[in-house]
Simulated assay, not measured.
Amino acid sequence: MSRDDALSWGGDDDPTLDVGSRPAPEPEPAPGREAAPPALPLGFTAVGRGSDEVGRIEADGTVTLPGEPAPLSNAVLVSLGILGGAYALFTVGGIIGGLRLQGTAQFLVSPVGYRFAFWLAVVAPALWFLTAYVLTRGAKAWVRLVWLIGGLALLIPWPFMFVGAVGQ
């Protein structure tokens, strides 16, 4: 009696005993077409040589190929919405604060210089948001959020903060 005999039952190789179906073998790729790259489920990270060629299997079963941008999570989407709203409020604050200072500022700066600075202050939040969003497409989500939060700290509408919407 051999060691493998303990792991088998007499007649295991009888073809009439196959009652289950076996999965169909993967079809060979057509000539001239490459096989799909390997993919890992979410939560797993490929490391080592060739790891940049490994795709991701999303929760719904779709495969994201390497090089495609990762979909944003719900928390990041909500954060982007909140930050976008804050940038829109900064634009409104720049308009209100700049218009409140119009009479005073023209004593210190030429009217052309004032108009240029006014429109730059109005457009700056939208430009920062768009630039940070586009330039951080390939980066991690936290990097994008840090750049957007940094822009909020940099672009505070000071005229609105000091003068406000009503009086001085």
Rank of each mutant, 00 (worst) to 15 (best):
G94P: 02
A124Q: 03
A46S: 00
L99M: 13
G20L: 13
E58G: 13
G67W: 12
G10S: 14
P38V: 04
G67S: 08
G113E: 04
T91I: 00
Y133M: 12
G113S: 12
F116V: 15
A24D: 12
A35Y: 08
L40M: 11
R115H: 09
V122F: 02
G32I: 00
D52G: 15
F107S: 15
F90K: 01
P23Q: 12
G61H: 13
R115D: 09
W128R: 10
L130T: 14
D13L: 13
R22T: 08
V134K: 03
V63W: 03
A88R: 09
P71K: 07
L83M: 14
T104Y: 14
E53I: 00
G81T: 08
P111C: 06
T45G: 04
V19K: 15
G43W: 04
G93Y: 09
L135V: 10
R56Y: 01
L120G: 10
V122K: 03
L40G: 01
V123T: 11
P71W: 07
S51V: 00
P41M: 09
A39P: 02
G67Y: 05
V134Y: 09
P37A: 15
G20Q: 11
L77N: 09
T62D: 07
R49A: 13
E68P: 11
V134Q: 08
P29N: 09
L17I: 12
A124Y: 03
P69I: 08
P31M: 08
T64E: 12
A59P: 05
D13Q: 13
P29R: 04
P69S: 06
F116I: 14
G11S: 09
F116C: 05
P38E: 07
L108C: 03
A124N: 02
Q106C: 00
G113V: 10
L42G: 12
N74V: 14
P71C: 11
P125A: 06
I95T: 06
G97F: 05
L135D: 01
G10F: 15
G93V: 07
P38F: 06
V54F: 05
G48R: 08
A132Q: 05
W128A: 10
A105W: 02
G11M: 07
T62R: 15
G61E: 01
V109H: 04
P23L: 10
G138W: 06
Q102I: 11
P111H: 08
G48L: 08
W128T: 07
L135P: 00
V92K: 01
V78D: 02
T64R: 15
A75M: 14
L77I: 07
A121S: 13
L77D: 03
Y114C: 01
I96C: 05
A24P: 01
A35L: 07
P23A: 08
G61P: 03
E34Q: 13
A124T: 08
E68A: 15
G32Q: 09
V47S: 14
V109Q: 10
